[in-house]
Amino acid sequence: MGKVKIVTDSTADIPAELLQKYQITVIPLKVMIENETYQDGVNLTPEAFYNKLDMMNSVPATSQPTPFEFETMYQRIREKAGEEISILSIHLSSAMSGTIQSAVLAAEAVKEEVSVEVVDSLKASYAVGILVVEAAKLAAQGAGIEGCRKKLEERKEETSVYFLVDTLEYLQKNGRIGRASALIGSLLKMKPVLSLNRDGEVYPYRKARGKKKAVAVIQEALEHQYGTRPVHIGVSHAQAEESGQELLEAAEAVLNSRSSTLTKIGSVIGSHTGRGTVSVAVTPAE
């Protein structure tokens, strides 16, 4: 069967220490700012991006890696391994990006050299990352490609994500607000708790009046879904570390947490959500 290597993209917002620990390979998406193209997380840090965002009059454009870039990465991983391997390539929701399509085309192109399984996470930011890390743990324990893929598909169904934005402007302008679009007018007067549906699209989970009540709505939803079941918790934030820490502590207060991660939202996801966004992702730990 050979070993399993894990690939994801930069929108998974996985902290560097976890990438290194579990040997996860990341392919960057791109951000276009004032005729300059940057690679998410490579030559554009979250801090630098949000500083640029504050000075822009328009919303940044983003783009997925090309099939050729994926091909090159898959081949490099195979060559570096020096042995028979399989690649599990896990990416941002296809409802938000063409990244999956590029990965699928590349997997077909290199199938004679290396076996690549492409998975649509139907998630974004660390909701992708938390799934990737769990898959990487299995691979590190020696699980084969079928075992990793099976567990990943199970975890996709059991992983929840809720997030709060300071403004719906970026989601609206980028067309990423999905089925929530009809409610923009009413939501602007509230603090919407947003989530992702089974198709990987943004939708309004519930409206709340103010941040404190919005966090309470998230706590109630998480406690109802997971109860005392052991879980992993991940919170990502867009230049809002204090709010991110508060959301993490709120989730830990009602859940049986086996591990928790606080990470930064990078430039691609940040282009669609804006500064101040906080998101919590939860997946079972058993």
Rank of each mutant, 00 (worst) to 15 (best):
L183I: 08
E108N: 12
L248V: 08
G178H: 04
I100N: 03
A81T: 09
T228K: 11
E158T: 10
V7F: 03
L19R: 09
G41E: 01
V268L: 01
I85T: 10
K123W: 13
T72F: 10
G210I: 15
A143Q: 02
L262Y: 03
G82E: 11
V104N: 03
L164P: 08
S86T: 08
K3H: 10
S195N: 04
V116D: 05
L171A: 11
M96D: 05
V215M: 00
E286P: 08
I24H: 04
N35S: 09
E113C: 06
R206C: 01
L196A: 08
T159N: 09
Q239M: 14
V235E: 01
E157A: 15
S94C: 12
A253V: 00
T159S: 15
Q39E: 11
A281G: 09
L138A: 07
S89Y: 07
K3Y: 06
G147E: 06
K191N: 03
A208Y: 10
V282G: 09
E286F: 15
E154V: 07
L255V: 05
G185N: 13
L29W: 05
A124F: 00
S89R: 04
K52Q: 14
M1L: 08
S259L: 02
N197S: 02
H237K: 09
Y226V: 06
V104I: 11
M32E: 13
T66M: 02
E17Q: 09
I33R: 04
T273I: 10
D166V: 04
F68R: 07
N57L: 08
T159C: 12
R209L: 12
T273D: 01
S86D: 07
Q23I: 12
